[in-house]
Design a protein around this nucleic acid. Sequence first.
DNA 1: AAGTATCGTTTACAAGCGTAAACTTTAATC
DNA 2: GATTAAAGTTTACGCTTGTAAACGATACTT
Lengths: 157, 157
Amino acid sequence: MNIKAVPPHITDAEWEVMRVVWANKHVTSKEVILILESKMNWKQTTVKTLLGRLVEKGVLDTEQDGRKYIYKTKFEEMVFIKDYANNLFQRICKKDIGHVIEDIIKEQTLSFNDIKKIEETLMNKKELAISEVDCQCISGQCECSLHQHGEKPKSAG
Amino acid sequence: MNIKAVPPHITDAEWEVMRVVWANKHVTSKEVILILESKMNWKQTTVKTLLGRLVEKGVLDTEQDGRKYIYKTKFEEMVFIKDYANNLFQRICKKDIGHVIEDIIKEQTLSFNDIKKIEETLMNKKELAISEVDCQCISGQCECSLHQHGEKPKSAG
DNA sequence: AAGTATCGTTTACAAGCGTAAACTTTAATC
DNA sequence: GATTAAAGTTTACGCTTGTAAACGATACTT
């Protein structure tokens, strides 16, 4: 019964470090320091602090190798990405999700192949589609309650 | 030359308050307090503090009405949603954006109509599609640099 | 063996955030 | 006009985050 584990929360600075860990199967602090030094302009100890916090939080595992550590992630990047995305969709009225997805598509750069893949995903999604998404906001936190039939008001002028 | 203004950063707690402001054209602190009291279990002053900080940050405008204020937003909800979404896409390799969008679609609940709209958006997007998205990561922060032709490695086993 | 370069660990410290008590002002009521 | 209730303002306080300096332990060098 694989409970979909919500990963620990990581901060922006920690995310930068994690990208290095994800891109390389395993890393040492030195490697992370070198990779991030120009992008982030961090002192060495800053990276070390962040690695330490990530270990504390249970995001990274360490394996000793002489006097140094090899750091490995315990969570795939996608877990954090999904968490971040879910976080966004939890802040909005469920009825608006489709609209937000449209907006994302308009905003981001996509290749022909990306589009093809998304189209396929959408085709499959039709099987699971419903006729109307249920707004799950509390009254007063979205506009749905202000009118009858679930549709959001277009121009409440 | 409408510069796309990045809105001030608002915190999670502030976002809860903003949802009330967005849902109602304008609100008083009392209204916000009433609307959020059961969901958030906040004391009255907590809401007042948050409203105060939002005004400080320039997210809300006030208009005095006797001894009380009428609060109005200076930014539409969509501005913050877009900002949040962009924030996500800035943390990942550009080549993965399509994949993440697919994932979002799989994960979220959508109506037939949502799907239809997204399909239309995708159709239009084809005009702007490119043959290959350029990874904009620095070397060491994504896997693209580990091989030749832009395609991400499937299973680097 | 002594010196030095490298790792990791501890401590630091200001700003931001969640959450609220205490205080002040002002409008409404008796 | 004095009292009270309702708004806003000030102060608070512990935790998190970004960013590091200082310190201690250890491995390589001479």
